[in-house]
Design a protein around this nucleic acid. Structure first.
Lengths: 139, 139
DNA sequence: ATAAAAGTTCAAGTCAACTTGAAGTCAAGC
DNA sequence: GCTTGACTTCAAGTTGACTTGAACTTTTAT
């Protein structure tokens, strides 16, 4: 497939595909003249990347998950990431419940609603790192 | 509370608190000389902001969720956001399962493992917008 | 054979969400 | 009452993830 076709089926702009290739997240198997040639499985790989991005992982983290770390497969890493997701799922669930409640709650201000505060507290129990970077003693 | 105390209990740097105030996400009730004074409830508000950020919402989206939209409370918006979360939860769950499986899978390459591909496909069913912006026909 | 369409590189630009630095102001403890 | 350290503003810098533009090369359709 050429880059335009990959762009079409993946929904990602060609510029993004070049960028991902540069970062080592996908690769082309060769060239037709100057033009990159991609094999079909790149599409699944891209789906996985999008999934990871959507889940809040950085491109670098995703790269690490893809890459066998030395001779051993990165079993530990994958399990750790699965665990991160587990925590995040719990958080999102609490937030979803909080929002659904807030939408119908009669309290003048959600911070005065005990139910709402309870969801907040549940969410707070799973201290998950922030999306981007966080330094020193944050949270 | 002064800014240092809020920083301490929230875990966020003072610079972030000033930034959030500038963006209208939190407010100080007054000043002691130049110094901002915050009431205690700002801490819960910050927890909610962090939760939202962690869930992948932008500061602007979070601001909108906080702000009653005209005379009517933003019921629709909150329910829509809850729904977004619902989709995201499904995606994260599929990804978590995929990772847990990949960690123990014997297949030489996950893209050849039918189980793994199934998780990918499940995740793909819920088309959720990307974390940042996405244009035209993406995904 | 040739011109348009599509691809290429590389440098620079953009955007959100902060952080950092310089220069100044105050309040509190001694 | 004076220093010191915590705070202030404002402008500029940073990072990740891309996007855009200019200048150029091919492929492909006519």
């Amino acid at each position: 497939m050429d880059i335009a076709e990959v762009a079409k089926v993946s929904g990602l702009p060609a510029s993004t595909l070049r960028y991902y290739e540069e970062k080592g997240l996908i690769k082309s198997y060769g060239r037709n003249g100057l033009r990159r040639l991609f094999s079909a499985n790149v599409v699944e790989r891209l789906a996985l990347i999008s999934l990871g991005r959507n889940a809040g992982f950085s491109l670098e983290e995703i790269y690490e998950m893809f890459t066998p770390d030395g001779p051993v497969i990165n079993r530990e890493l994958l399990l750790a990431k699965a665990d991160e997701l587990e925590n995040k799922i719990a958080e999102l669930t609490a937030m979803r419940d909080g929002l659904n409640h807030a939408a119908v709650c009669k309290a003048p201000n959600h911070f005065e609603c005990p139910k709402f505060l309870r969801f907040l507290r549940i969410a707070g129990k799973n201290k998950v790192r922030q999306p981007s970077k966080l330094k020193k003693g944050d949270l």
